[in-house]
């Protein structure tokens, strides 16, 4: 089976990852549960990953895929620290609603 580089234009991947990124932004703005917000951040990171891989494959340059590898590393570390923070917050205020945590607002 031929790969999609020959027959699918690169603009389609650009459109797809832009739409995915905007869904992630919308989720961050829409939801109040902190876990869902972390998941939407993962969605945005994956949209950027997809765009980097498509550019790297179309241009024949491997450095984009190395960058995607490092983005995955940073995302894994971010999720570990973020979920630990969330567990610690839940232990103190017994909720993951981000509108409760307004003590540092002013």
């Amino acid at each position: 089976m031929e790969n999609s580089i020959q027959s699918v234009p690169q603009n389609w991947y650009l459109l797809l990852s832009t739409f995915m990124f905007c869904i992630g932004v919308m989720g961050v703005l829409l939801r109040r549960n902190a876990i869902i917000i972390l998941m939407c951040i993962e969605l945005m990171l994956n949209a950027v990953n997809l765009l980097l891989v498509s550019y790297s494959s179309y241009a024949g340059n491997a450095e984009g895929q190395v960058f995607v590898f490092f983005i995955m590393v940073v995302a894994a570390a971010e999720v570990a620290v973020g979920l630990a923070l969330l567990v610690s917050i839940y232990r103190n205020v017994a909720s993951t609603d981000i509108d409760i945590l307004n003590r540092m607002k002013w």
């Binding site: 790969n3 580089i5 020959q6 234009p9 690169q10 603009n11 891989v53 550019y55 790297s56 494959s57 179309y58 241009a59 024949g60 340059n61 491997a62 895929q65």
Partner: peptide, 14 residues
Amino acid sequence: MPVPYVAPQLSEVG
């Protein structure tokens, strides 16, 4: 600008 296609032997970067 759309990214130009490369030759198939160059697209084995992954």
